[in-house]
């Protein structure tokens, strides 16, 4: 599964990093999130989904690569 943060939507709530610190890095400048991986390791798909569900801006997608 792939992981994406829509940078136009992310406003730096930082909740994704709180619940899945290995999957998201926060910008030193404004705290906005970016994924640390392109491909989510099998055992972390659950955590990625939890982070996506908890994003107030609905900026995170976990999706099947084509």
């Amino acid at each position: 599964m792939r992981l994406k943060v829509d940078s136009n939507r992310c406003q730096g709530h930082t909740l994704c990093h709180l619940v899945a610190p290995d999957l998201f890095a926060l910008s030193e400048i404004d705290g906005h999130a970016s994924p640390t991986v392109d491909e989510v390791p099998e055992e972390m798909i659950g955590a990625a989904q939890i982070a996506a569900d908890g994003c107030p801006e609905q900026a995170i997608s976990v999706y099947q690569a084509d």
């Binding site: 406003q11 709530h13 930082t14 939890i50 107030p56």
Partner: peptide, 20 residues
Amino acid sequence: RFPNRHMSFGLGAHRCLGSN
């Protein structure tokens, strides 16, 4: 509680700058 998509810091571009 999680998910907890509360709006206490607002939402969108104007979301609270000082939340951290």
